[in-house]
């Protein structure tokens, strides 16, 4: 397994530390909104730096690969997600009633950056691109990664919803809620992000099924019952429900917020399962000398990095 460029790891580590720093600042700002100005400027600079750096790294790796496919490994996907999350945070920092959302978004960004370090330094594995249909593969990767980013936004809004609701219900420290969006606005964000995420995930999963069905002979029996299929289907169902909470009695508000968080947790679990489960490696280890066949792990390249 090739080690990634140590400079990349160093840059990602620095970005992660900056993100942790910004997270602490955002959490402090949530508690003491009156100390806003300098903290706000510092936080914007950090987020802008993370967005630009991750975009720069993403483009650099894309150009280095030489092909038209921008995402050639899980690391690239995480860099793309980091850029999108940082861009989203930068946007919400300029919206008066959404500023508080950065306190919930920055921990997710920190997590994704940390994961990118792992993917770059220790678990780097390029996707088995030549064995897959390029168009379906592109749709699959774009759908899954961008869909996950949207689901991440929904989960952040869900976290903030729970926080705002807890403060409103407990009637605690209500004086400084100016940085926090209204519950209705947050529910709107959850639903809209869930709708977009659902559409993209549907594209990603459907294209994944197409890729699988192209070479169904190599599929092991009961492939549809493997953890990644079950988890990704469950996540897809959660978002299908989440986008319709306004019409489902009893699923509004708090439950919708929890659904958004559960949905993201299921997606992350899918990534984790696919990356860490021995099934894919076990199958490839059976015949290490031969070219890797398009197994379940490789036809889900996003999880197979």
């Amino acid at each position: 397994m090739p080690l990634a460029n140590p400079i990349t790891t160093l840059i990602l580590s620095a970005l992660t530390v900056l993100s942790v720093f910004a997270t602490v600042g955002a959490l402090k700002r949530l508690r003491h909104p009156e100390r806003a100005f300098t903290a706000s400027v510092r936080q914007r600079l950090i987020v802008a730096a993370i967005a630009l750096t991750t975009l720069g790294l993403f483009i650099r790796f894309w150009l280095a690969e030489g092909g038209w496919q921008p995402v050639t490994s899980h690391r690239d996907g995480l860099l793309l997600m980091s850029f999108m999350l940082a861009g989203t945070i930068f946007f919400i920092q300029n919206r008066a009633r959404l500023v508080g959302l950065s306190a919930f978004a920055l921990p997710v960004l920190t997590f994704v950056l940390g994961w990118a370090i792992c993917s770059s330094a220790w678990t780097y594995h390029p996707f088995d691109l030549p064995t897959l249909h390029p168009v379906w593969r592109g749709i699959h990767l774009a759908g899954v990664y961008l869909g996950t980013a949207c689901c991440g936004v929904a989960a952040m809004a869900g976290g903030m919803y729970l926080y705002v609701q807890a403060r409103l219900k407990r009637k605690h420290n209500l004086g400084g809620m100016g940085l926090l969006a209204s519950l209705e606005a947050l529910e709107n964000i959850i639903i809209r992000a869930a709708i977009l995420g659902f559409v993209l995930l549907t594209l990603g999963l459907a294209s994944g099924v197409v890729v699988i069905s192209e070479d169904s002979t190599s599929l092991p029996s009961g492939w549809w019952f493997t953890p990644k299929i079950v988890l990704s289907t469950l996540a897809w169902l959660v978002y299908a429900l989440l986008m319709n909470v306004r019409y489902a009695i009893g699923f509004r508000g708090r439950r919708a917020a929890w659904l958004s968080i559960i949905g993201l947790a299921l997606l992350l679990a899918t990534y984790a399962v696919v990356n860490r489960l021995p099934a894919s490696t076990a199958e490839s280890e059976t015949d290490p000398g031969t070219e890797a066949a398009p197994t379940v792990s490789s036809v889900y390249p996003v999880e197979g990095g």
Binding site: L168, M177, L180, A181, S182, L183, E184
Partner: peptide
């Protein structure tokens, strides 16, 4: 009114 704005957006 401020608290109402915290619950409702529009």
């Amino acid at each position: 009114a401020d608290l109402a704005r915290q619950v409702f957006a529009d």
